[in-house]
Write a protein that binds this DNA or RNA. Structure first.
Length: 617
RNA sequence: GGGCCCGUGGCGCAGCUUGGAUAGCGCGGCAGCCUCCUAAGCUGUAGGUCGCGGGUUCGAAUCCCGCCGGGCCCGCCA
């Protein structure tokens, strides 16, 4: 099973087995042999190397090089290990390329779009919260990074056998909503355009006006109080406005192929009573105390024994801070509150997913929440409040839930001139809608050049897929914790190390397969003699390991880098290894299978990245 | 003042968790490759004290300590 679904892993295990047996034969201690295995810098040193001899040198009082020689001689090839050689103190294992090719190609042909999937999660439920933008503005490219990271991780974890539920939290009770609602009411002439953009601009306008008209602050406070109270005209009006904005935001994320299972509204959480329940629960612990001194009159969460600073949860006026609400929500995600939410269908995503929403007129459903693992995709700047929320779980005795809470922290996207600001409107020109439009327009020009006479529907679909691919890739390729500076030339990069370049390799592979009608034939497995062919086989064999690593470490960028690497290997193969015009039928047959498998793996990788794999472009 | 993250050729990144062989990849520069499966491609070439200084080690980009530079947090904001 494992050998079938994860060929490179099989090679590693075989190498380990060979290493252990050689140790036994020589009567040497085993130790942690697995961690001594690494990939050599150059294929001339084999495919996997062990550094045990360096460690053993001290214990056995013999030079590493001599030890390596004895070890290599004692090693007997088995499984995917074709041989072992000593060099410079390393023991280098050579992979049996013919056998690896056989295993890998058969695995890919058999599993198809499931190659790369592994049954690690065992159906365990993971809840991922991402996007969670205030419903008062369009998504700018920084929000886009959040959505794309969250969506990609969701796809990866699904492939690893987890049941994944994606939630988008909508804070319709915050200051931004209050301010935007005031702006919306006051605007006699509303700007034309997409609703979220309209709101975003009104928000910028009101901030300008508030500078010269301080009385507006009072208006905002009044609205905020009404929102907090709920059940009045203002709160219903705010919800209606926010609903429209969310629909508008969803048009944007739909275009990015980002999907959600549930929209969770703050006003519904507030109504449910889960906050009060959570606070009551906390009051029974020694950690929630009446504040003294500067915190006089407030309720303070004291987590000193867990190494955290005090955090006010309830203000002296009785209202709760955001972190308190977030804590209640976190408990709900794990199914640890009795309070219930109500749900009803909201809309369908283009991929067919039915998105639900919490709603006062919905009905209770057991299928949401109750996760065993929770991942919050939230900016790095919220590290402290996230830690407070998680640590509070521990304080409440939910140790397991504490350990299974993950803050997937990502660095913000900045502009060359500074940061994004909703108030000053620096996002204008950098909304996801605008960036995607621009990328699609450029892709369109390229597609036109290369597909003269093609149908209109083909051209627009290809341009859309390529443009979106470029944007998604540019947002996922960097390690999440790093800040990125938005540059047009990077978001619109269609060359190597880009979404479109990977899509292009897929299209080339598809094109070869399209042009050949012959279906199969017999061939031996040792036909791949070129380094480019062998490199490609190894790369294909590694795919499941990469998916596993990306999922376990919550580092989706690893998958993006792998896809670019695979595409590079294929391009090199493509240059030197004619398929249709191969020297003989046997080689042609084998190369065709290799090309087909490459096509499948690129497609699977792109699928996990939420990028379409066009057959022509 | 306390804490977290980042610092790798001109630019953008990977590698750091688990220390190992000449530090990889891309862009950009230069020089080449389309009678042949899509040149969104490929080949070659120049370019790096892995921020700085100590330490641990047979061996440090990787671990430890100190410092410098950038970002973020330490709110009855989120």
């Amino acid at each position: 099973m494992r050998a079938l679904s994860n060929p490179w892993r099989k090679f590693k295990e075989d190498a380990l087995k060979v290493l252990k047996e050689a140790h036994t034969k020589l009567g040497w201690p085993w130790g942690e042999l697995e961690v001594t295995l690494e990939e050599p810098p150059d294929p001339e040193f084999g495919d996997l190397a062990s550094t045990v001899c360096f460690e053993l040198a001290g214990k056995l009082r013999e030079a590493p090089a001599r030890l390596a020689k004895r070890l290599a001689e004692a090693a007997e090839p088995a499984g995917l290990v074709a041989g072992a050689e000593a060099s410079n103190g390393y023991v280098n294992f050579r992979c049996d390329l013919a056998e690896l090719a056989r295993l890998t190609i058969k695995a890919i042909e058999r599993m198809g779009d499931r190659y790369g999937h592994l049954p690690l999660g065992g159906g365990e439920k993971v809840l991922i919260e991402h996007t969670s933008v205030n419903p008062t503005k369009p998504l700018h490219i920084g929000h886009g990074r959040n959505s794309v990271i969250g969506d990609t991780v969701a796809r990866i974890l699904r492939a690893l056998g987890y049941r994944v539920e994606v939630q988008n939290y909508i804070d319709d009770m915050g200051l931004q909503v209050a301010e935007t609602l005031l702006a919306y009411r006051m605007a006699k002439e509303k700007p034309k355009g997409k609703f979220d953009h309209v709101l975003g601009k009104l928000y910028v306008d009101i901030h300008d006006r508030m500078k010269s008209e301080p009385k507006l602050e009072g208006e905002v406070r009044k609205i905020l109080a009404e929102l907090e109270m709920g059940g009045n005209r203002t709160s219903r009006e705010a919800r209606r406005m926010a609903e429209r904005c969310v629909r508008s935001n969803l048009e944007t994320t739909d275009r990015l192929n980002v999907s959600y299972d549930l929209l969770v509204w703050e006003s519904d959480i507030a109504r449910s009573g889960m906050l009060e329940e959570t606070l009551n629960h906390l009051r029974r612990t020694p950690y929630l105390v009446r504040g003294k001194g500067k915190h006089d009159g407030a309720l303070v969460l004291c987590l000193k024994e867990f190494g955290l600073e005090d955090k006010v949860l309830v203000r002296s006026d009785g209202t709760a801070v955001y972190t308190a609400r977030d804590l209640a929500y976190q408990l709900w995600k794990f199914g640890k509150v009795g309070a219930e939410l109500r749900f009803k269908p909201h809309s369908k995503r283009p991929d067919g997913t039915q998105t639900y929403t919490t709603s006062p007129d919905g009905e209770p459903r057991k299928k949401f929440g109750r996760a065993s693992k929770v991942i919050n995709v939230v900016g790095v700047e919220q590290r402290f409040p996230q830690r407070v929320v998680f640590t509070a779980l521990r304080a409440l005795g939910f140790q397991r839930e504490y350990e299974n809470s993950h803050h997937l922290a990502y660095g913000h996207v900045r502009l060359p001139g500074g940061k994004f600001s909703g108030r000053s409107g620096t996002w204008m020109g950098y909304s996801v809608d605008e960036v995607v439009d621009e990328a699609v327009a450029r892709a369109r020009a390229e597609v036109e050049k290369r597909n003269i006479g093609a149908s209109e529907s083909f051209k627009s679909r290809a341009a859309e897929e390529v443009g979106v691919g470029a944007v998604r890739y540019s947002l996922i390729r960097t390690s999440p914790e790093k800040e990125i500076v938005f540059k047009w030339e990077e978001a619109l990069n269609f060359e190597r190390n880009s979404g479109p370049a990977i899509q292009y390799s897929h299209a080339r592979a598809s094109s070869i397969l399209r042009k050949v009608k012959m279906k199969g034939g017999r061939h031996r497995w040792d036909v791949f003699k070129l380094p480019e062919e062998q490199q490609l086989v190894k790369q294909l064999a590694k795919f499941p390991e990469v998916v596993k690593l990306a999922g376990e470490k919550l580092q989706p960028h690893l998958l993006a880098l792998y896809a670019a690497d695979l595409s590079l290997s294929f391009n090199k193969f493509y240059e030197v290894a004619p398929v249709i015009g191969a020297e003989n039928e046997e080689l042609k047959t084998a190369r065709l299978r290799l090309v087909n498998c490459t096509r499948i793996v690129i497609r699977n990788a792109l699928d996990l990245l939420g990028i379409k794999a066009p057959e022509r472009m």
